[in-house]
Design a protein around this nucleic acid. Structure first.
Lengths: 354, 354
DNA sequence: CTCAAAATGATAGACGTCTATCAAAAAATG
DNA sequence: CATTTTTTGATAGACGTCTATCATTTTGAG
């Protein structure tokens, strides 16, 4: 009934501890038949190595670094908070997590930090990728030194990192389209607003969005705001003038403040009706806007879950496990006012140390 | 830079290891000033006890039992699978998880199993509660023996268990209402179907549903199916005859097969249009129905996440931590065809054992 | 059969903590 | 001051594993 130890395995296999250990840790120099007997004993007893004892003996601890873009909107702020929370929660399990601030939207800055990580004895790094030759090279150098590299939120080429944890942007766009479809079953006019269609994530979301718009409605040409609030506000205003019957808006990117400003005007006006609005990332002002009914639905990519996933992935990789194919795919969550999760939920609090 | 050990703390405090240990583990018999010095050293060095080493030394392992109702629909099947997956994943961390089958809807059967658990050296039990004096008494007996008792999916009185992990049913109902509201902005007729309004979860969902129906629509009287498929099918058919313009259906409980049968008839007919259908729990046939467009939205309570949460909660409690107030509240997820997560997603697979 | 090579056994010290015991030192008591 | 009590120190063995070393046995080749 007690969990078997390697000693038990050795006894069951009729070999010494040393031999069992040689098999388990692939040290070689063991006769074929002994290997088989040990493996059979492992199988039969259902032995699993006590990883915690092993790590203790090895003096091993897991050192991971997260490179999170500085500010760049509250989204990464939430991410950073989530990393901190996880760091605290796993500190007693020999898992050390370091957070590095990285200049936003700056591939050279990112590369610099990456390069500085090379001799820091890390077992894994998590970063929000910005593609550039220098970044790619830095990543390669790290992986050559057996550092696992995961991308978060934004990906690089799939062969140059160990895993990608991030939102399924196509599904996200389709979900948005579905909401607007439901809300305008008998036709209407919908306006998509992106940051820039050159960004792959925005492009994917837009693609999914168009796929899911099944009803007989007009999809206006997508507006690219380049994340400037004024652009968004102006676009909404002029669209409403041209199409007073606007039924839906899908805001693909960030820079929501311009949108909110315009929507507030609409809310006060008597001429127009509030369209159904779908946007991304349940953070700060978006949360408020949803709560007061200024917008209708928010698609969230669950930053806390993402970093938990990322850590699980890195730990698994460090332990020599392999990840299932779509382990990193984050399915978008859809929130209304009604099922909005409460704000900052950290993990369990430390009580008196036992 | 290395993580400090208790030895380091002792040295920094200018006391022996033994004294530091006495303070850390509250063994008593230590002079006030020494206590303070040790605590200061802990603070200053940022010492955290290596829980894994401590557990190793204590020979401690976490033994948890999950009492999952036998069959009773695929939902609990998914739950059981999720428990198994977690059990496997945490086996190497000295966490043993046992699954006990419990007869469904049978408080005496549940009580019996609970009573048999009393001398099994468990540190925690997770059960789907069915309220009855005998069950309550069994729970009390367990808690008196320092076994943590968590309820899952269905709760008992809040003072008779350590935590409840489960869906926010009010929010779930509101979410359903919101979807139908969006889909029928200019009026319509919606039909709610419950299993039984005596079940608190169904009643709560229905309450939330009514709250969220804001548009100018007729909410037909709720139908209680008592989980018999024929009842559901009949109700849908007769409702459609009386209200050919039926715009929405909210199926509050389980027993969806009758619903699907009726909807398939509608799909083939030329007389009626498919209403917008919202239901619960993304499992088996529901998943298929969503995929083929027979229904529109599914509210899921994420069984896998629930059991992960439950385990985290039990582990935290075992380690003497306290849970934040709404730790167990599961926010409902809303899935369309478009953001439906892929089916059974287990954790990372074991590769060659390192 | 002999001898080297290969395989196995035995065992010790480490990792950080727990638990326990015994002796020594310091403080409080009269 | 002598005696008790309280507080401290020192240390050993355990937990399950890793790593390493050295001695012994078994195997295979000549």
């Amino acid at each position: 009934m007690v969990k078997p130890t390697l000693m038990d395995v050795a006894a069951a296999a009729g070999v010494s501890y040393a031999t069992a250990d040689r098999v388990l840790n692939r040290r070689g120099g063991v006769a074929e038949k002994s290997v088989l007997r040990v493996l059979a004993a492992i199988e039969q007893l259902g032995y699993t190595r006590d990883v915690t004892a092993a790590n203790l003996a090895r003096g091993r601890s897991y050192n991971y670094a997260f490179l999170i873009p500085a500010q760049a909107g509250t989204f990464f702020g939430e991410m950073r908070a989530a990393v901190k929370a996880e760091a605290k929660a796993r500190a007693s399990q020999r898992i050390n997590i370091m957070i590095e601030e990285v200049p936003a939207f700056n591939s050279d800055g990112l590369a610099e930090v990456l390069e500085s990580c090379i001799d820091r004895d890390l077992s894994g790094i998590c970063l929000v990728a910005i593609d550039s030759p220098r970044v790619r090279k830095a990543i390669q150098a790290l992986r050559a030194k057996d550092v696992f590299v995961l991308t978060l939120v934004a990906d690089t080429q799939s062969d140059s990192r160990d895993a990608y944890i991030g939102l399924d942007n196509l599904a996200a766009g389709r979900t948005a389209g579905r909401v607007l479809s439901l809300a305008s079953r008998d036709g209407g006019v919908v306006l998509p607003i992106a940051g820039s269609l050159d960004a792959t994530d925005h492009a994917l979301r837009f693609k999914g969005f168009k796929q899911a718009i099944t009803f007989d409605a007009t999809v206006l040409p997508v507006i690219e705001s380049f994340d400037r609030p004024e652009n968004v506000a102006d676009a909404v205003r002029s669209t409403l003038e041209a199409h007073p019957n606007l039924t839906g808006i899908y805001s693909i990117g960030s820079g929501q403040n311009g949108l909110f400003a315009a929507l507030k005007e609409v809310q006060k006006s008597v001429t127009y009706q509030l369209p159904v609005v779908v946007l991304h990332d349940l953070v700060g002002s978006v949360r408020t806007a949803l709560a007061i009914g200024l917008v209708d639905a928010v698609i969230d990519q669950k930053p806390d879950q993402q970093i938990a996933r990322a850590l699980d992935a890195m730990k698994a990789l460090s332990d020599g496990e392999t990840l299932p194919p779509d382990f990193g795919t984050i399915v978008p969550s859809l929130y209304f006012q009604d099922n909005m999760p409460s704000a900052p939920a950290d993990g369990p609090e430390k009580g008196p140390s036992l």
